[in-house]
């Protein structure tokens, strides 16, 4: 299958810019506004859905199943490692809060919306966003190509 018409493809490519900006915005502002890693990741994954519809088989190289699966695993490992790093106090402890430089004091009440106020929470949001983006993309890619693949019988 060769995908949809040129108009749709160009529109999908143009839409990638605002959609990814919005997705990254939701992830980055996870600790300040509604939303966060999961929601932003899901927004990002709509790009994959858009591209699969518009480009069909041609997207196979860009959305590689192996690569997506590796990214997903690494994002999960990052997430749990951040939780483990807090073990000097407790598991999941926010050890980067008030650490200076990039990690400022927490925002309380009405504030300027500075991004450097969440300690490890923005980092965890990024890991979750990456994981959700790659996992949802993986699901969509597998559902799209899986309908054409033959499932070989597992020996065991």
């Amino acid at each position: 299958m060769s995908g949809l018409s040129k108009i749709v493809r160009v529109t999908a490519a143009v839409l990638m810019v605002p959609v990814s900006t919005f997705g990254l915005y939701v992830i980055m502002h996870g600790h300040l506004t509604p939303g966060g890693g999961f929601q932003g990741g899901a927004v990002l994954a709509t790009i994959s859905a858009l591209f699969i519809i518009a480009y069909a088989d041609e997207i196979k190289k860009a959305l590689d199943v192996n690569l997506l699966s590796l990214v997903e695993t690494l994002a999960l490992i990052t997430f749990i490692s951040l939780a483990f790093l807090g073990l000097s106090t407790t598991f999941f402890s926010n050890f980067l809060l008030k650490a200076g430089e990039l990690f400022n004091n927490p925002a309380v009440g009405i504030n300027g919306g500075d991004l450097n106020t969440g300690g490890i929470i923005p980092l965890m949001n990024m890991a979750v966003g990456l994981e959700v983006f790659s996992a949802l993309s993986l699901i969509m890619v597998l559902m799209y190509y899986g309908s054409k693949m033959e499932v070989p019988e597992d020996v065991s």
Binding site: G86, T89, T90, F91, F92, S93, N94
Partner: peptide
């Protein structure tokens, strides 16, 4: 064990 507390 209290998760995320300043001591367990």
């Amino acid at each position: 064990y209290a998760l995320g507390a300043s001591f367990p």
